[in-house]
Design a protein around this nucleic acid. Structure first.
Lengths: 139, 139
DNA sequence: CTGAATCCGGTCCGATACTG
DNA sequence: CAGTATCGGACCGGATTCAG
């Protein structure tokens, strides 16, 4: 089973938060815009995998650690980390040491995405993505 | 509030599903492979947005409907729909009519991803993705 | 008329080499 | 160690074309 971070408490909190937005409100429009931006961000290559690392494992991650785990070119990793930092999902702290050290941390905003990854793990326990016969593609 | 598909029942089901996999088992390795394939699929451009459409709205969607909502080139949409159909997340039904009509439906496997999008909606009610000041990117 | 195949131009990504 | 520079290739967007 995938590690539930603190899933139970968290989900109970969510479920008790009924009817937060009037469906046609101006705030709802902003939410849609945020959703669009979020999906657009998550749609970029490797972004989900990177966030998955931060959401599941606790503590800071270094550039080289991510490079090993994620299987990504350094320039692309650099771009992704910058993008995620810009929108406040990660923080970056550079130490003036030799050899240099840079630590990336998930913000609370990013940690609030943890249930997504946790649930994706649940999903993979119940399903696969094996190619389907041509007959089963119709219905 | 974003529409919870049947959030309460769903989450209770999930939360009661403790310790389904022995962590080092062969099945766990397959899960990881599935997860990798899933993230790789979701990482492709527009895939998440497309699945979002199927997961939130009920009922079949037509090619042209998706084309309007998703803002995607027709060739790319065609590719995505084929990929999603191949792995069993969508089914495709073509009617022999004039004008022609093709309907895509989410399979149960795809519907089981709905909680992901539902929760992303919850997340957007609590957070945004506005650019963060340079000072706040450090910590 | 809709869904999709084809061709081309642009953007994004990967691999390697290199720098502070 | 943590990136940046450069280049080649894969992927995506747009327009056109085609089949049913």
């Amino acid at each position: 089973m995938v590690e539930p971070p603190n899933a139970k408490e968290f989900l109970e909190t969510i479920l008790s938060n009924e009817q937060a937005r009037p469906p046609g409100s101006e705030q709802a429009a902003i939410d849609n815009q945020t959703m669009s931006a979020l999906l657009n961000l998550l749609g970029k290559k490797h972004t989900i995998v990177i966030l998955h690392q931060f959401a599941t494992g606790a503590g800071p991650l270094r550039f080289s650690e991510l490079e090993e785990v994620v299987d990504i070119a350094p320039n692309t990793l650099s771009n992704r980390l910058e993008e995620l930092t810009e929108v406040g999902l990660l923080t970056r702290k550079a130490y003036n040491e030799i050899p240099p050290r840079v630590e990336y941390n998930a913000t609370e905003k990013a940690q609030d995405l943890a249930p997504v990854f946790w649930y994706l793990g649940v999903w993979t326990e119940r399903h696969d993505l094996e190619p389907v016969s041509a007959a089963d593609r119709r219905r």
